[in-house]
């Protein structure tokens, strides 16, 4: 069950700098830990995150094993036009999670 929490301002003035905050559900297993029996716990992390604003990629991040569970990412963009932000998290074992949020620019 993958879920995400997105915080994008519902409306903004044209040219405003807006903050986008995302939090997604993931265990981010490092691949360095061992079980009590000594077996390596296989790595299971999110490896990449992208944000598209009306189809144009505006932010991308690569994620690594040292990042905490349930990664929280915050970044800024300039509100140019009304539309949709689309978020995508891609990870190990075929993990894909998507979310979107709308903004009205006046």
């Amino acid at each position: 069950m993958a879920s995400a929490l997105i915080n994008v301002p519902a409306r903004a003035k044209r040219g405003d700098v807006v903050e986008i905050r995302t939090l997604t559900s993931h265990i981010m297993e490092t691949g360095f830990r061992r079980t009590a029996a000594g077996d390596l716990v296989p790595r299971d992390i999110i490896t990449s995150f992208t944000c598209r604003y009306n189809g144009t990629e505006i932010f991308r991040a690569d994620l690594f094993p040292a990042i905490a569970a349930n990664p929280y990412l915050s970044f800024f963009t300039v509100a140019r036009e009304s539309g949709k932000f689309e978020f995508e998290w891609i990870g190990d074992n075929g993990f894909v999670s998507t979310a979107s949020a709308s903004i009205t620019v006046e």
Binding site: S3, A4, L5, I6, N7, R21, L23, T24, S25, A69, N70, Y72
Partner: peptide, 8 residues
Amino acid sequence: DTSNPGML
């Protein structure tokens, strides 16, 4: 609530 991981 959008940064509190408990909300997930």
